[in-house]
Simulated assay, not measured.
Amino acid sequence: MIREKLELLVEELKEKNIIHKDKINLKTYDELTRGVPEMLTLHDIANYRPIHINDACKKFYGFKNNFLRGMDYIYYIKTIHPSYYPTLFKSLTFFNEDQEEFLDLTYKLKNASGQWDILIGTTKTVTRSADGKPLNAISLLVPQEEHQPIQTAPMLLLETLTKREMEIFLLISESKKTNEIAQELFISEETVKKHKQNIYKKLQCNKTSELVKMAFELGFKY
């Protein structure tokens, strides 16, 4: 499990005094994490930017450096597929609310050859300020084929929806009723019902509350 892999890494970094309560020894962090086989990114939470990537991550993106000086949030926008932007919003919510220990997400990222790959990742806050606010976090990612979740990741299920089904999914997540959706999209209620049946099937949901919950989890609804 990727959570366990990240947890073991963080424990090792703490035991070797590389990660302290409110700071990280970047030089030794770089030395220890470069050879980790999984893709690692060290984040500056306050400024929402990446600080460091290990060699596996550098090779995947085709970047030249491990330290990403001068990078800001544009890094995240450039490397992730537009359909997965809600994962960025979900990340912001995760750090702002600061209630969960791990953030598990599915990513569609552009590799060095310009192709899009699906990766499964988890993120954990590793340093905090004196008043307890998140300072730094580490993300660990592995290719989808190396991770075998019990269920298909919600974001992958969402990719099976047609454009019209996606429109209806978003309206359902806003608690819109069938007649309201029909009026807004200028289609019949019967057509909306048929689309809803397909949406439930594709997203493996049985009721509206499950769709709304999925929308929250994916960052489409707050």
Score class of each variant (00 low, 15 high):
172 I>N: 00
165 E>Y: 07
159 E>I: 03
184 E>L: 14
163 K>W: 14
173 S>Y: 08
163 K>G: 05
160 T>Q: 13
157 L>M: 06
168 I>T: 00
157 L>N: 02
174 E>F: 09
160 T>F: 04
176 K>N: 06
165 E>N: 06
169 F>W: 09
161 L>C: 09
173 S>C: 10
168 I>L: 05
159 E>P: 03
164 R>T: 09
152 T>L: 10
155 M>H: 04
170 L>P: 01
162 T>P: 00
178 T>W: 06
170 L>V: 08
156 L>F: 01
158 L>D: 02
185 L>N: 02
157 L>A: 04
152 T>G: 09
159 E>D: 13
158 L>C: 12
176 K>F: 10
178 T>M: 09
165 E>V: 08
182 A>G: 04
176 K>H: 10
169 F>V: 07
158 L>Q: 03
152 T>Y: 01
153 A>H: 05
153 A>Q: 04
160 T>L: 08
168 I>C: 02
165 E>D: 08
166 M>C: 14
178 T>E: 10
166 M>D: 11
172 I>K: 02
160 T>A: 12
182 A>D: 03
168 I>P: 00
171 L>N: 05
180 E>T: 02
171 L>I: 08
186 F>V: 04
173 S>V: 10
180 E>Q: 10
185 L>K: 05
155 M>V: 08
179 N>R: 12
185 L>M: 08
